[in-house]
């Protein structure tokens, strides 16, 4: 199968004020997205997953941010990072669409939801206002909003959080994009609404045949909805695998820690396990492996030299890679405490 979206060596840096140096928020991130699949990107706050998603559509505010030359975001045979502004606008919302974390603030408060859903259709398909409105009603029905004929004239403040996220999805999907980037689409919602929204995304993905880049910190979401997973830490990809392989054989100690930190309903444990320490500042990543200060297995090699992404061969799943020296010296993985 041919790659739909190819990201290679993506580097997005932020120049901080007062000469505190450069924040390397995204540092040589590479991954592929295939047609129709869901690729999860997981990591904790500050690992660079949101900046990665914004960089794909060049939505990173410049300045202070900038995407370094040598980065590649290839879609449909074209490097999005090299497109002119009008060419890029023709891709945004049309071929690649995006939904955001906060449905409360991601809708313009002074326009009706119908107006906002229709916007992309007016921009890209040059529909008349009347035709665009009919499309907007159709989209509202598609995303499961009751009474779409009435809701189309409502303002965002008249809708609940879950409804607003449905509206966001309708906005993003009105042009039937090939790729949907969903940046923490359910983080701001109640758990029950979360499940509904994720089910809706799954259904729409099937119906419209799009690929989804699902960005989340929630491993539960990844387990239920992603085909493959990219784990990010400190601006780097630290592990990539199919969802099954990742949960069966987590290789990078960070992934291992993340999985251990998920509360489980079927296990009695006095304390929830946590990864010690916190993500270091993006202006000063540690030398060597960026995870070594928090890693229970770290040895001198980890401080001296950063490992590349290594094929694990684990569970004979092709494409399972981890950025960890343990892949070459598995005997150092001490028995679990």
């Amino acid at each position: 199968m041919s790659v739909l979206l190819r990201v290679r060596d993506l580097k997005t840096y932020f120049v901080t004020e007062h000469g505190k140096g450069t924040a390397r928020a995204v540092d040589e991130v590479s991954f592929d997205l295939y047609p129709g699949e869901t690729l999860g990107i997981v990591g904790e706050s500050g690992c660079g997953k949101t900046v990665t998603s914004l960089s794909i559509l060049r939505l990173v505010p410049e300045p202070p941010g900038h995407i370094l030359p040598g980065s590649l975001v290839e879609f449909d045979g074209r490097n999005l990072l090299a497109l002119s502004a009008p060419e890029l606008r023709a891709v945004r919302g049309n071929q690649i669409a995006m939904i955001f974390q906060e449905p409360m603030t991601s809708l313009n408060p002074v326009f009706t939801v119908g107006d906002q859903i229709a916007e992309a259709a007016i921009i890209h398909q040059h529909l008349s206002r009347r035709a665009a409105r009919a499309r907007a009603i159709e989209m509202l029905r598609l995303v499961g909003i009751p009474d779409p004929d009435e809701r189309v004239d409502h303002y965002p403040h008249q809708l609940s959080g879950g409804m607003r996220q449905r509206v966001m999805i309708a906005m993003a999907l009105i042009c039937h994009p090939k790729v949907l980037i969903a940046d923490e689409p359910t983080t701001a919602l109640d758990v029950t609404i979360q499940a509904q929204i994720l089910e809706l995304l799954d259904r729409l993905q099937q119906e419209l045949g799009m690929a989804v880049l699902l960005i989340t910190h929630d491993l539960g979401v990844v387990a239920g909805h992603a085909d493959r997973v990219v784990v990010m830490y400190a601006g780097r990809v630290v592990e990539t695998a199919t969802t099954e392989a990742l949960f069966e054989h987590p290789t990078h100690p960070y992934t291992e820690g993340l999985l251990a930190a998920v509360p489980r309903i079927d296990a009695r444990r006095a304390r929830l396990q946590a990864i010690p320490g916190q993500v270091p500042a993006a202006t000063a990543w540690p030398p060597g492996c960026r995870f070594h200060p928090r890693c229970p297995y770290a040895w001198d090699k980890c401080v001296a030299q950063e490992p590349p992404l290594l094929e694990t061969g684990e569970g004979n799943a092709a494409g399972h890679t981890a950025r960890c020296w343990l892949v070459t010296e598995p005997e150092r993985r001490a028995p679990k405490r």
Partner: peptide
Amino acid sequence: RQRDFVVAARALGAGSSRVIVRHVLPN
């Protein structure tokens, strides 16, 4: 200019003039 819905509009392919006329000025 920093608000989420402005970023969302740009992600939908709205150009600067459209963002200004429809999203910034009315607000």
